[in-house]
Design a protein around this nucleic acid. Sequence first.
DNA 1: ATCTTGCGACATGCTAGCATGTTAGCTAGA
DNA 2: TCTAGCTAACATGCTAGCATGTCGCAAGAT
Lengths: 238, 238
Amino acid sequence: MSQDTVQMVAEAPAFRPLSDFAGTLSQRVYASLKEAILDLSLRPGAILRKGDVCEALGVSRSPVSEAVARLASEALVDIVPQAGTFVARLSLDEVREGAFLREALELAAVEEVARAITEEQLVELRRNLRLQEGLVADGDIRGFYAADAGFHELLLSFTGHRRLPGLSRTAWVHVDRARRLLLPEPGRVEETLAEHRAILAALEARDPEAARAATRAHLRQVVTRLERLGTERPELFA
Amino acid sequence: MSQDTVQMVAEAPAFRPLSDFAGTLSQRVYASLKEAILDLSLRPGAILRKGDVCEALGVSRSPVSEAVARLASEALVDIVPQAGTFVARLSLDEVREGAFLREALELAAVEEVARAITEEQLVELRRNLRLQEGLVADGDIRGFYAADAGFHELLLSFTGHRRLPGLSRTAWVHVDRARRLLLPEPGRVEETLAEHRAILAALEARDPEAARAATRAHLRQVVTRLERLGTERPELFA
DNA sequence: ATCTTGCGACATGCTAGCATGTTAGCTAGA
DNA sequence: TCTAGCTAACATGCTAGCATGTCGCAAGAT
């Protein structure tokens, strides 16, 4: 019961306007809410009143309800029937599960891709990698993260499976949210770049096992640092 | 309204009553619809009118709408806005993707489990395997499939990840639906049983690579037969 | 002072009806 | 006879209001 009581004032939602997104109202509400949750601008553990969301976004309750249901299926919110909806707390268990899922998917992908990658696909990866190098040189960290995501999305799309990239992103959601807590470490982007180069090298060699090893090493970096954070500051996680 | 003709009766959805399920109305509608889709009692490609579902199940349109939205997220139905909702056609691409996903998850799981499986967990697996043997001996194929599913669910649960079994089941959905088209092959259940024994043996030996190999061989059986069916009778798939 | 108990407020889930965009069928013209 | 355009029915998406179950607070009893 010793919950936070002081921060009632800091409950300013500040959602991105719906006009920034496309699709049906439900999808737009979903996108806006999800972004707010991943941003941590909706604090973990905070109550999420559907009525407030309706008023803030200027829509009725059906689209909000559907959007919240989708978020619940990703464990980003907890719905307690007839009681309330709460933003999911940060949880090391969820981080571990998300990391496990993404690692499983991505290892299977690179293993398959390494066996039959085409020259055109390698060209795409090399181009993305050069883009990353440029962004690092310019110090554009935000752009680098976007290119990073693009690199992984390219890899997954090479399997030919349409829904795989989206599933991987969904799996990674809890890791990504917790990552906001990590302070930027000097030299980390250069390490990331080197890890991407190692993955590309394994794919150029068409060596499935090397590709798996490089991808695994790459993906475990973030989780390792989050585990360390969990032991150093356990109060951050539920 | 006009009376149902004889041919209309063939289109009778025949949903399982909602009282057979638990949870909110949305969840029950979802379960009932999903079962009908997997049963193929809702024909692939058929139009799925929400109004009809409402009337058949005796509920309003909101829970139906939410249930259908969930089905759409699993690609079991296609929603065309302001036009109609259709039961997804059988698709070899979806079968391949579902098989890929489940294989990725389950290989990662057994690899991890093999490293640190406890004696109690092995006991659970052995007990399940003996159950399978008994059901095969009794010729209870339906019961055997249930025990089969339980075997895999046990394996996945040993990772400690809560949502993993459900995700694997979701991934497998398209394979499972297409499997209804396969004629039962004599001796297949005994082969399945042998494959399960091989997985268990690898786990008892705490050999991650052997566990991966055995699991992979097991999971690819169904897909191989479905691929064959796809070349022999391409008209069955979209 | 503490524990219990009852009442009030409230958040979600559901129902019913309106707005919007699509599709199919029919009609008129070439 | 075939095509093009129009109209009418219709399916979904959204809005607004009712039913149901939960949680919190306060007053009273021990």
